[in-house]
């Protein structure tokens, strides 16, 4: 046990020294590039330019909404809507723009605290994606469809439906790994070909979905975590799909979290060590959520080594940028509030 803890501590220290930068932006560029190729092959120049103008408006809307500036976001989104109504757009182009427009509009509704409207808009975007994928051949939008599913997962998580959210998350993991039958929204499954996703994008999406699970489960009591996470047991055991082993980081995190929740400490420390060792570049959120669990474990261990590591982590966390509140809150809790024992 001591050696496993020490290995985890060493992995954390090694990982935090690794200065590699997160690679999510590169993944975004890959998606944008593939999407632009698909669009260039199908839409007229005018439609492409209008689409680009709409994309600019949506980007401004998203940025403002993330910043809590909902009036600016609404204004930008109204400019996107205006383009959507343009008479020069073909049905295909309009559908394409509508999918992305509704997705951003849903985010605004999400930020405004209206889950019903947010769900309805995401479903409209999903419906548009189905047609675009199955009838117009936009295979790359499979990633957008999964992203929309992930957005619905966030809606459920934020508005008090953690069980529903984890169920969606586990299903999306399986679907992204190529299991068609796992798609959690059967009404919007036309043309499903997740196995056509480029490996790099599938990997990024699996990490993103796992990250959402990590936020959802951060700081939850052990019993509740076990209850919620049991829906992902096939992934934890590595038998959900043929590709579970391809997505190592996400599955290491799942196994570590499962070990943490069940207080199966050898499994926790072992998987944690593997996850933390190479630093946060490939999965920043999973890395930080895991450090939060390690921090809690240190509190419970109550040894000199654990206390030293706990203090070190507490100091390090002060410099962490933009950590989701549920993860950050773990560090803010007092030792007395921790209900974990070893």
């Amino acid at each position: 046990m001591d050696s496993l803890f020490q290995a985890a501590a060493d992995a954390y220290r090694n990982g935090k020294r690794n200065q590699r930068q997160p690679s999510a932006a590169a993944t975004g560029r890959t998606f944008d590039h593939l999407l632009s190729i698909a669009v260039a092959a199908r839409l007229s120049r005018d439609e492409q330019l209008l689409g680009r103008a709409a994309s600019g408006a949506r980007s401004r809307a998203l940025k403002a909404a993330r910043n809590g500036q909902l009036d600016i976001a609404r204004q930008a989104l109204s400019e996107s809507a205006q383009i959507l109504q343009s008479g020069v757009l073909s049905a295909e182009a309009r559908l394409f723009l509508k999918s992305f427009h509704e997705a951003v509009a849903a985010y605004l509704d999400f930020k405004r605290g209206d889950p019903d409207l947010a769900r309805a808009r995401v479903e409209r975007a999903l419906a548009a994606d189905c047609v675009l994928i199955s009838q117009y051949g936009y295979d790359i939008l499979e990633l957008h469809r999964i992203q929309l599913g992930h957005n619905l997962m966030r809606v459920e998580a934020r508005f008090g439906e953690p069980q529903q959210a984890t169920a969606i998350g586990a299903a999306l993991l399986s679907y992204t790994e190529g299991d068609n039958s796992s798609w959690p929204f059967p009404r919007f499954g036309d043309g499903a070909r997740p196995d056509h996703l480029p490996d790099e994008l599938a990997e990024a999406m699996v990490i993103q979905i796992s990250g959402e699970l990590a936020i959802l489960l951060a700081g939850k009591p052990a019993e509740e975590t076990v209850h919620l996470l049991s829906v992902a047991l096939p992934h934890i055991e590595g038998i959900a799909t043929d590709r579970c082993n391809d997505h190592l980081l996400a599955h290491q995190w799942l196994r570590a979290k499962w070990g943490f929740a069940r207080q199966a400490w050898p499994a926790f420390f072992e998987n944690l060590s593997d996850l933390l060792r190479d630093g946060l570049a490939d999965a920043p959120l999973l890395w930080r959520a895991s450090v939060a669990d390690l921090y809690v474990a240190c509190e419970a261990l109550d040894t000199d080594g654990a206390e030293a590591l706990r203090r070190e982590i507490a100091e390090d966390v002060r410099a962490w940028p933009r950590v989701p509140e549920p993860v950050r809150a773990v560090f803010a809790r007092s030792r007395e509030a921790t209900a974990v024992s070893i």
Partner: peptide, 23 residues
């Protein structure tokens, strides 16, 4: 398009700028 030197044909530009300013 990205720098908004080209804009949609039917856009009322003054209205858009003022709406942005209001927001």
């Amino acid at each position: 398009v990205d720098i908004e030197l080209l804009v949609p044909d039917d856009e009322d530009e003054a209205a858009v700028i003022l709406q942005r300013n209001d927001a």
